[in-house]
Write a protein that binds this DNA or RNA. Structure first.
Lengths: 220, 220
DNA sequence: TTTTTTTCTGACATTATGTCAGAAAAGCAA
DNA sequence: TTGCTTTTCTGACATAATGTCAGAAAAAAA
């Protein structure tokens, strides 16, 4: 947090009207916003409490009134991101028919959200392994998708829409693929275009789940 | 590095005959082996220079004679892992024909290597974002695969073996999928079985690259 | 305004890092 | 083996970032 930062692209929900909020709520928001802004253009490893509070114009000590430490702050950011992503994925998660189409729609929304929050997603992902609690929060979040996708695949298989294969490992793989590719393309400015990323993702999901041919030549 | 560790499964190449090596080479190896053993059953975040040297039976200071810091040590472990993985992937990388078969073979070897070195792979992956040099080394490593896979896909497309689609984003996605799933299943003891993981990976790769149908319904 | 409650801060304690000069050990030659 | 040179190791020190706490300052309420 020692370097200066460009504010060209304001990352997100600019806090609207502070004046009516309790002071403590204002300060908390300032800290969060400052962190968000910093992480938009810097790696999590360069974030420090001292730098953050400096930038925010408050004393270092004050930070600890609102967060246990930097990882706890990331946990808060993760929570914000979580419901945004879950909202994006919902169409497919609750769909009863037209799986493939709903899947494509959901994937597109997912890609868009991650495009918008890319650097934050990256920061959360990178900082998660450094802290047990945060790591667990992240894993719990990802597991929701593992479970849901697995269930959807099994359902589609039962309906004859998808061929037979072990659903869970494939679901896990597809989700890890999403995370990896989204972070790769959108994690740092300048971010890639949305379209090619979306097309790659959708191709892999659809061909994997609904594609007929499995050239399973080698069995080890 | 404060907890005790189980040595049930010795992770790798047990240093054979130390007696003929220079003292410094012995010590260096002891440090590396101790780290390897620790990481076999603990997260990188719990590794410290103090704990490591304690376990190795040398003074903390001594560590710095061989490595700049813990991340530099991880860099060394990464190098070891690198050629092992590259060797596994080689069959496909240099294949001129039978792409799909060679791909399946290479993937199987890759899965096997990552099964054997899972926890180390995880430790490298998790520690990489914390250090600029290490991060770069990791990215360079992964980029090799991105480039090679992209080239192979384009080649197969030119030969009419694979349908048309943007090769690079797909290559990147497939590689991130590999990393994610291999770390997920093999990163920590107890590790998953090899077969289901291999089958999921191979299904995704083959269906994605050689599968005909791309139900590209939504274009946003 | 005065009083009470909330919020902020400077000073301190702690912990892990990395450095350096000198001690100890290893390697070597006679 | 002994003495000499080079390599390796270590304790003491300096540094940097964290997290805590009691009191100061500011906000909110009366």
């Amino acid at each position: 947090m020692s370097e200066k930062q460009s504010i060209k692209t304001w990352p997100r929900n600019v806090a609207a009207d502070f004046s009516k909020l309790r002071k403590s709520e204002q300060t908390r928001q300032i800290i969060l916003d400052t962190a968000l802004e910093f992480l938009w253009s810097h790696s999590f490893r360069d974030l420090s409490v001292a730098g953050l509070t400096n930038q925010a114009g408050i004393s270092r000590t004050c930070f600890y009134q609102y967060f246990d430490d930097l990882h706890n702050l990331m946990e808060v950011l993760l929570n914000d991101l979580e419901w945004e992503i879950l909202a994006a994925a919902e169409p497919w998660l609750i769909a009863k028919a037209d799986s493939a189409v709903k899947l494509s729609e959901s994937l597109y929304k997912l890609v868009k959200v991650c495009y918008e929050r890319g650097p934050i997603l990256l920061a959360i992902f990178e900082s998660a392994p450094m802290d047990e609690r945060l790591e667990k929060a992240w894993n719990d979040f990802v597991n929701v998708f593992d479970d849901t996708v697995t269930a959807r695949i099994i359902q589609d298989q039962a309906l004859g829409r998808a061929p037979e294969f072990q659903a869970r490992p494939v679901a896990i793989a597809l989700n890890r693929m999403d995370i990896g590719i989204l972070i790769h393309h959108f994690g740092r400015d300048p971010r890639s275009e949305i379209q090619p990323v979306y097309q790659a993702i959708v191709r892999i999901w659809l061909n994997t789940i609904y594609g007929k041919e499995t050239l399973d030549t080698v069995q080890g």
